[in-house]
Nucleic acid binder design. Structure first.
Lengths: 194, 194, 194, 194
DNA sequence: AATGAATGAGGATTCATTCAT
DNA sequence: GATGAATGAATCCTCATTCAT
């Protein structure tokens, strides 16, 4: 039942399957066959659409990144004032599709991938810069000159907490994560006002 | 030129080679042959001494952990007062053998390994608990009831900053990392005194 | 030149090649590569179709057994009266595809395999029981109550003679084997009529 | 504690261990290391004494054969008259050290070995001929011209019954085996007297 | 558009065997 | 006499990838 216009559907299915499979295995040592089977097609078709396993993984990474970016924009749109913007950025990092077990585990593997693959490294840097830039932007009115430093610290904190959730045994707990980051941010900010 | 008592020497060489190789490749997809060659022996001998690739990786992980623990103890011994203890813990995390490019990259891969391998997960948890426990201990006199929370946050911060260094392109910068964590800690602590 | 519907063809070729290779080598220490090469394909394809060397051997065993069973049924169909049924059973054991050098040698190795592999043991037992049951059936009208005992003995005799042919240097001689078993059977039966 | 005159002791221990190990594994795929360990020494020493794995197996085969021959001679010495000689030959085949699970299983593997190894084949033939010759000798006074044929048949019967015990799941049952052969022999003999 | 067929390359692991001590 | 050290040579098996249909 080959149909026309299947390409986007297939690609999407494969990306979702790749993330799910990586999440389930906990490693990048996932076979293309398994991913393809999970997506309901042959591995040959997967290659037809992505050219190589690596490209498929990159597409999956791009997908996670794109969704994360979209959610961030969406949250920022709703925010009123710097404090809310800050909260939005933190909250988005620990919620939505980006914080499901699958995605969290996938992230960990993208970190590893970024060590060898230039494209993956670039994608990662884009994500990091976007987050930092957004954090700086939100912090400027509140923290002034310290905004850059605080943004840097907040980003590290977010990554650290994210990592901990990725390695924990239970299901990731977004609320707890958010609170941890928020309380630190407030501490750093309140000190400023001294 | 077979000698007696080679076992500890060989094991040591293999562990070092494994860490170096993982660091160089940036991934766990390192072959036993490569590691063995780097350690100056046949892959068969590597298997003879470790039984399996996985056991070899675990030994490498244990080694990194042990050295880290030793350095931590050493620094704590020298510390006078809670503040110095705290500083020691942070400084040790970003210095010494534990913060060489190799080791940093190896850590990243151990994170991935811990997602599937129970033994690796256990080792990781031991490390995390030891760090948290040490941090709590040092924070108690300074932060009182908030010590537990702050220790938790500091640990996350350390991991986050560590992660950033692992993913950065340049050589890890321990001083910068230490300062980042320290300044946050001071912020959180100073708020307490309000 | 990939074609569709190759699976049964490939499986068949591999089974035949496995039997031939075992027969030629005289042992189970045959490599998958050799078998695959003899069957005109890569070892990877052999694994693709059988999953493992062991499964391939079991399939070969099942094949020999199935052919033997078919030949037995065929001979029984033609037989008129108990004596002819008996003769058919003995003759089939020492003729046809089941008594070619290859198969005879393969049998010997299946014996060994049956000592460790439960599935092989089961297959072997099925063959033994079928033969005994058929022998009992044929002997009942002739030997009455002694049928069970005689069937047991005839089966052992068949195996013993078969073994001797398997170990002999020359090509197995079916006629000689058949006669040996038959003459013993007649001796045992004639005693009954005393 | 290297002593002088250890050679025969070591060789003996290795032969016993080899038989035991083959019996336990049910196959020839036994490693020299395992055998040596079972015999309480290093694999290097095993090689020192036997030169190769194959030679060790042959020695084990020779040992089993020698013991079997000795037991046969012993039983024949005690026998009075042809009938007792016959009974002695059958009984010895299914009793003593030659009929322990270990040895029975080892025999099966020697059969396989005899298919490739000329020396093993020669040993096997010697055993077979000795048994046949002894059987003929005992049968001559009773069966006259038919002695040769009957000896042939009896030998096959012994092997067949032996095989069945080797493949059975339970412990070999010598009495049952002996009776089966004996009753057939008597049947064949009684027919002669008709 | 889709897939079964097919393989080359590689990788972990095993093991008989050798050798210096 | 005895062994730990060491390895080359296999062997099974996996997998990304290609291709004809």
């Amino acid at each position: 039942m080959p149909k026309l216009g299947m390409e986007p559907i297939r690609r999407d299915a494969l990306i979702k399957a790749a993330i799910a499979e990586i999440g389930a295995t906990g490693a990048l040592e996932v076979t293309v066959s398994r991913i393809a089977r999970r997506a309901g097609m042959s591995s040959a078709l997967a290659h037809h659409y992505f050219g190589s396993k690596e490209q498929m993984f990159l597409a999956a990474m791009r997908h996670i990144l794109a969704v994360y970016g979209a959610e961030m924009r969406g949250a920022l749109v709703m925010a009123r004032g710097p404090e809310q913007r800050l909260q939005a950025l933190v909250r988005v990092s620990f919620s939505g599709s980006n914080f499901r077990r699958d995605a969290v585990s996938a992230w960990l593997n993208f970190y590893v991938m970024a060590q060898r693959n230039a494209q993956a490294a670039r994608l990662l840097r884009i994500y990091q810069q976007r987050l930092r830039s957004n954090l700086r932007h939100a912090l400027r009115p509140i923290a002034g000159a310290r905004a850059a430093d605080l943004a840097e610290g907040a980003a590290a904190m977010i990554d650290g907490v994210y990592l901990r959730e990725a390695l924990g045994t239970g299901e990731p707990n977004g609320t707890r994560a958010e609170q941890q980051v928020t309380s630190w941010l407030q501490a750093a900010l309140s000190r400023r006002t001294e």
